[in-house]
Design a protein around this nucleic acid. Structure first.
Length: 248
DNA sequence: GTAGCGGCCCTAG
DNA sequence: CCTAGGGCCGCTA
């Protein structure tokens, strides 16, 4: 007699089920240390989908993702090194469900090196939407993977650290923990200096750019605006790209 | 398609 | 200093 198609289909499902089916519908979570305390991290088969600090992790996850959540045996490979070094290129992220705009924002923010900061306006211009400054802030306010996408490295153009999905205090602690020289940024901002140039190279940088930090004091010049630096004959640094131009 | 909302901001006065 | 307005901008209903 002919096999029941329903039973055949179910049998096929049963064969496939043990291998990865759960990971395609559920997420696995771990708890990991960080400078702002214990974090909860949820991963799918695609990568890290959610990073949460403080209480209410499971509820927040379910409300946002609507997936089952099960404990993981161990952290995803690359997660702990990424959190330790502040370089997340080695850990996959699951950013499905985000808008193209938000993905663009997160991708740009991911390029900011540890210990350095860039303005919100820089991110906006970098993704080709120079007017979407506040929208960038809104997108980062919903960053599902803080620390791994280092939105704490995005600060206001006036030198103020600004707000963060985990709160301003957490933002500052994260920056100080990775060696960002906030005292220096504030000192410069108080003098209305937001760019530093070297008169030996003719290059102008954001103050936290590693190139700016190496300028000999005698050759260092501060600028309030990029236009003033340009007028003085400086060109934007190709590393930190002040002025956000795509080609420098 | 589109009106309304709220947004981790920016800059001019 | 401060504050308001941005022919804001993306997202949601």
């Amino acid at each position: 007699m002919t096999p029941d198609p329903l039973l055949t289909g179910l049998a096929a499902l049963a064969v496939d089920a043990p291998d990865g089916l759960l990971d395609r519908i559920a997420a696995r979570w771990v708890s990991v240390p960080s400078p702002i305390g214990e974090l909860h991290v949820a991963c799918t088969d695609q990568g890290v989908a959610y990073v949460h600090a403080g209480a209410g992790f499971a509820e927040a996850f379910r409300e946002r993702f609507g997936r089952p959540l099960v404990p993981a045996a161990r952290p995803l490979a690359g997660l702990l090194p990424a959190l330790r070094t502040g370089r997340s290129s080695g850990v996959p992220l699951d950013l499905r469900g985000l808008s193209p705009f938000q993905r663009d924002v997160l991708e740009a923010v991911r390029t900011i090196p540890r210990g350095e900061v860039r303005p919100y306006a820089w991110v906006a211009a970098r993704i080709g939407r120079p007017g979407a400054v506040r929208a960038v802030g809104a997108a980062l306010g919903r960053n599902p993977v803080p620390l791994l996408v280092p939105c704490h490295r995005v600060t206001r153009s006036d030198g103020v650290v600004g707000d963060h999905v985990f709160g301003p205090a957490a933002k500052e602690r994260l920056l100080l923990a990775e060696g960002a020289d906030l005292a220096r940024v504030r000192e410069l901002a108080a003098a209305r200096v937001f760019y530093l140039g070297s008169d030996t190279t003719g290059v102008v940088c954001f103050p936290t750019c590693h190139n700016a930090r190496r300028i000999t004091p005698r050759h260092r010049h501060g600028f309030r605006t990029l236009a003033q630096a340009r007028a003085a004959g400086y060109r934007p640094c190709r590393t930190c790209r002040p002025g956000q131009s795509l080609t420098g």
